[in-house]
Amino acid sequence: MTLKELVWDMDGTLLDTTAVVPAALARAVRVLGGPDVDASDVVAAYWRGTPEVIMEHLVGRSLTATETDVYYRELEGVEVVPYPEVVDAFATLRAQGNALAVFTGASSRAAGMLLESAGLPVDVLIGGDHVERPKPAPDGIYLAAQELGVDPVDVAYVGDSPLDLRAATTAGSHGAAAAWGHMYDPAERADVVLAGPLQALELLSGGARA
């Protein structure tokens, strides 16, 4: 199968945010008077959607826009790095004329901050705040495909979590499991399992195999 474009998940796929994002959310929850949560509590709530939704769940009440800004203040200045091969993969895609597209459950504001910190500019950024339903709903993949001017069936969605792969399946896209990511589950069905980001490029030439 030859595909036209790649769409990437961000956390655990492009960027190693394993420590910084849960820590920033946990600090924000404490500042807002919520319980003393740890990284595992935060990660367990990722499926709920954007940071704003996660914070409301963890704090246990509705939050104003001013209150949710606490998270973004905690996120300012954090240092994150791309996973190995990501920079090279993006450079190759750019040279080949392919777009650099991301669909993340994080808000577009948080994603922009983290991608900028990592020095990883993208052409298309779809955040959790751009869609009505979070993963595993396919909304973000549909929107990314629309922005790229291709059909979802011609897209491979590269992500580490089971929710990423389920979203790809529902969208009719190619689900590419990022086996280097911290939420990768080998028991979750994928169209292809990738050992590293550079291997994703083979999907555009029909060279990858599950």
Rank of each mutant, 00 (worst) to 15 (best):
S107C: 00
P22W: 08
P82I: 04
S40I: 03
S161A: 15
G60Q: 12
V124M: 08
D123L: 11
G172W: 07
V7C: 09
G77C: 14
V192A: 15
T50S: 05
S62K: 15
T92P: 03
G140S: 03
A19P: 00
H57K: 14
A28N: 03
V53P: 05
D129R: 11
G196L: 00
M55C: 05
S117C: 11
D185N: 14
L194A: 03
W8G: 00
H57Q: 12
E147Y: 08
W47L: 04
L75G: 03
E188G: 00
H57M: 10
E67M: 07
P152C: 09
E67L: 04
L203G: 03
A24H: 08
A99V: 12
L201E: 11
V155Y: 07
R109W: 05
A23D: 15
R73N: 02
E132Q: 15
A118N: 05
A101G: 05
T13W: 01
V59E: 02
V81N: 13
E79F: 11
L100V: 12
L114N: 12
P121C: 01
F103I: 00
T66H: 12
G112Q: 09
G159I: 02
F103R: 04
V7P: 09
L201R: 11
L120K: 10
R27G: 02
L120A: 03
A178Y: 09
E147I: 03
P82N: 08
V53E: 06
H57T: 01
D88F: 03
L3Y: 15
G34L: 10
A144N: 06
L143D: 01
R109N: 13
V37T: 02
G60F: 13
R166D: 03
E52Q: 15
L58F: 11
T17G: 00
T169W: 14
P134D: 01
V53G: 02
L165Q: 06
A110G: 10
A200N: 01
